[in-house]
Design a protein around this nucleic acid. Structure first.
Lengths: 120, 120
DNA sequence: TTGATATTTGAACAATTGTTCAAGTATACT
DNA sequence: AGTATACTTGAACAATTGTTCAAATATCAA
């Protein structure tokens, strides 16, 4: 209880009110923050990054992707569902096969910007 | 065992070998993939996104940040450590206070690119 | 030195995430 | 119809992550 009081005091009293107010005023909306964490979250996984990169080169079926990444079909399929849900990839069925390709102009740019970042 | 066999067959036999080989050839290095997932991972959290955004506007002490985000000092400090470890923020001590600011030219660009993506 | 402020840190805990496994659908071939 | 291929899906499980809580450190002020 004493500890909690101490924290409350800190958060309320000893702050640069003007600064805080100014930054709060221009703070991102919860919606923007949520959407941002969502796309960045998609890009925060090795398998998905590789899938996105692979699909930026070629349209590929699930089997091809699994072969390229070296993972199980099931694991790839689960990841593709995540990419599908955020509409980052589209797919077409050709008999038994399902061919995936990128369905988002921006995602590759974001990916490339990230790559630029890590390579400098 | 039968199931496993089936998967192996799929992954090895029924694949477009030329395509797979071509994409494998240009595939990202493990190092690049790891680094990418690392920075995107940092950006995949609401608190950290808000911190980065706030610090892009003003240099702020931990207390200010906590006040802006409405979280506990401890939680913010933990997040700042993550940002520090990836050298996305720098800090200076001024008596009791620790002031943080962005220490990476690229991260804001990546952030803005993401924002552009979600707002279209 | 004692007490208050400002921040960091470690451990514990719940929530989220990615993978595996097994079962399910869908299409083609015989 | 039966079998094989291609993919999807749900449940379970381990691993990772973010937060909280309590304790530790550092600086300042009386």
């Amino acid at each position: 209880m004493a500890a909690k009081k101490q924290q409350d005091v800190c958060e309320v009293k000893t702050v640069d009110k003007a600064k805080v107010k100014a930054v709060k005023k221009v703070m991102l909306s919860d919606k923007d923050v949520y959407s941002l964490s969502e796309i960045f979250g998609v890009l925060a996984d090795s398998s998905r990054l590789k899938i996105i990169y692979a699909l930026s080169k070629e349209e590929l079926c699930v089997c091809d992707i699994a072969s390229i990444l070296g993972g199980s079909i099931s694991a790839i399929s689960h990841q593709l569902r995540i990419l599908r849900n955020l509409r980052l990839v589209k797919f077409r069925k050709e008999s038994k096969r399902v061919y995936y390709s990128l369905d988002d102009k921006h995602i590759k740019r974001l990916f490339d910007q990230g790559l630029k970042h890590v390579r400098e």
